[in-house]
């Protein structure tokens, strides 16, 4: 076994605070939606909007960080080994076959992850931010020249994206326990270090 440093301090901070915020927002969001009762509508709104602002702040930092460090390249999609990954999750993982992808500091995400995170970052999250901000500034639409928009549409898109977010969340949490050892990924995101199998000299 070999230990390599994958997740830098900022990345880990960003990941966990985002995870917490999104969990809170999903929890309060669906309460606002009327799915269940938890905090009460008023507190749910307060938590939801406060978290929204914190999350937006965090994202501004994260975008800046990705751009300045060049880490955004981690999310460029690739088809290389994509099928191999799919095959691994469908069969290999059960038979203890070797993982087709090897993480390195330069390439942290396997091709499936890349794709999933890209959808998260380019589709689900921005849809939530944009419709969420619109929702928040509903009374300013007229002044922004968006008078033709209607709240129902914005709310429905926001809800639809939130549903996708929950689906992503469930899948993502499960995958976190699907590393070389069940806790390997989790440890990596906490300490920054992941244990990987020694690479055989080619």
């Amino acid at each position: 076994m070999q230990r390599i440093y994958i997740f830098k301090r900022f990345e880990r901070f960003w990941h966990w605070s985002q995870a917490l915020l999104i969990a809170l927002m999903a929890l309060t969001g669906f309460e606002i939606h009327g799915t269940y009762k938890l905090l009460g509508f008023e507190d749910a709104i307060t938590v939801h909007t406060t978290s929204a602002w914190v999350l937006i702040g965090l994202w501004v930092f994260a975008i800046f960080w990705h751009l300045t460090t060049g880490e955004w390249r981690q999310y460029i999609p690739t088809t290389e080994k994509l099928l191999a990954m799919v095959r691994y999750y469908v069969t290999g993982i059960f038979t203890n076959a070797p993982h087709p992808f090897r993480v390195t500091g330069l390439s942290k995400h396997n091709p499936l992850q890349r794709l999933a995170y890209l959808v998260f970052k380019l589709v689900i999250a921005p849809t939530l931010w944009i419709t969420g901000l619109l929702y928040l500034y509903y009374n300013a639409w007229e002044a922004w020249g968006l008078g033709d928009l209607d709240l129902e549409t914005v709310a429905l898109i926001h809800t639809a994206a939130a549903i996708l977010m929950v689906v992503f969340f469930v899948g993502h949490v499960y995958m976190a326990f699907s590393g070389q050892t069940p806790l390997a990924h989790l440890k990596a995101m906490i300490t920054g270090w992941e244990e990987v199998e020694e690479e055989k000299e080619a």
Partner: peptide, 22 residues
């Protein structure tokens, strides 16, 4: 549209199905 009062039945149903399937 009153948040908490209104929702789209179809979307809600799709949401439940999707999340449960996952």
């Amino acid at each position: 549209y009153i948040p908490g009062r209104d929702s789209n039945r179809l979307l809600d149903l799709a949401g439940y199905v999707l999340v449960l399937l996952t």
